[in-house]
């Protein structure tokens, strides 16, 4: 099968066509079937058949190009590996848009963007904002178009429960939220880390400092400046950027909503 996602064409070939239906459930958000067999990136999936020798069990194998990226007896694990690889390649090679690792919600026609690495508390802040009426745009990536506006990437939220490292997936609707549809201009960029008992003391960042903070979470940062800087520039010149450690997410949600609604400069 061949498909495209954010301008990159992928092909997946399988030894057993019956697994294709399961594979399709793991394709990246926004994928579309492609008619052309010309692809930028080819995966090969060798599904384990019946064992030919007694006492042995064949593996499921997954290749990206000619490099093997998974070898396992567990087909679900192989699909998870494929999904993770596909998502990353899509984000890295995306054309005409830029993937920034960030949570995003919409509020009164503007987007609040919360860039940050894993375990920085993005999801808990996004969840708290949704519960206070914000529209869900993304829990994983801010997809910025050439104008610096955010497009929705509403994959299910990965909510970690306490110290449990395994996240559970929730649709925004399950948390009482609505999913955004239209692209939004970024009104507020929030650089924050969760720290228990931390005081919320936001300070404004200059455009250059904001650019640095966004680039630090840009998937295609190493592809070159012409890919990322023109898009990030649109964001940092038009949006307010603030930075602070934070305590509980619920405490700062009203402040963020007020800030994004206030006129800029």
């Amino acid at each position: 099968m061949s498909f495209s996602a954010y301008g990159t064409h992928f092909g997946i070939r399988v030894t057993d066509p019956t697994v294709l239906e399961r594979v399709q459930q793991h394709l990246p958000w926004g994928w579309e079937p492609a008619a052309s067999s010309q692809v930028d990136f080819m995966y090969s999936l060798v599904a384990a058949g019946a064992s030919k020798r007694q006492g042995t069990r064949p593996y499921h194998l997954l290749y990206a190009g000619s490099g093997r990226i998974a070898r396992t007896h567990n087909f679900d694990e192989l699909c998870a590996r494929l999904a993770s690889h596909l998502e990353l390649v899509t984000a890295f090679l995306a054309k005409n848009c830029l993937f920034v690792h960030a949570g995003v919600v919409g509020w009164q026609g503007k987007a609040i963007m919360i860039p940050g690495r894993s375990f920085s508390g993005k999801t808990s802040l996004v969840t708290a904002l949704i519960k206070r009426g914000a529209t869900y745009y993304s829990d994983e990536f801010a997809i910025l178009d050439s104008q610096g506006w955010v497009r929705p990437y509403p994959s299910p939220l990965s909510v970690r429960d306490g110290d449990d490292l395994n996240a559970k997936k929730y649709a925004a609707e399950e948390l009482g939220g609505q999913v955004g549809v239209e692209p939004l201009p970024v009104g507020l960029v929030v650089i924050t880390d969760y720290q228990p008992e931390a005081q919320w003391r936001p300070r404004a960042l200059s455009p250059a400092q904001a650019m640095l903070a966004l680039m630090n979470n840009t998937i295609a940062a190493l592809r070159g400046p012409e890919v990322s800087i023109p898009i990030l520039k649109q964001v940092v010149l038009k949006a307010k950027t603030i930075k602070s450690k934070r305590g509980e997410a619920e405490e700062i949600v009203p402040l963020l909503q007020k800030l994004v609604s206030a006129p800029h400069r």
Binding site: R71, T72, L88, H101, L212, N217, L222
Partner: peptide
């Protein structure tokens, strides 16, 4: 003057690169 090292794709996102194998 503030500086950062440009992140690789994996550093910038959540995905862990894991490699699993089994000893049967």
């Amino acid at each position: 003057v503030k500086s950062i090292e440009l992140p690789t794709a994996l550093q910038a996102c959540s995905a862990n690169c894991t490699f699993s194998y089994f000893v049967n």
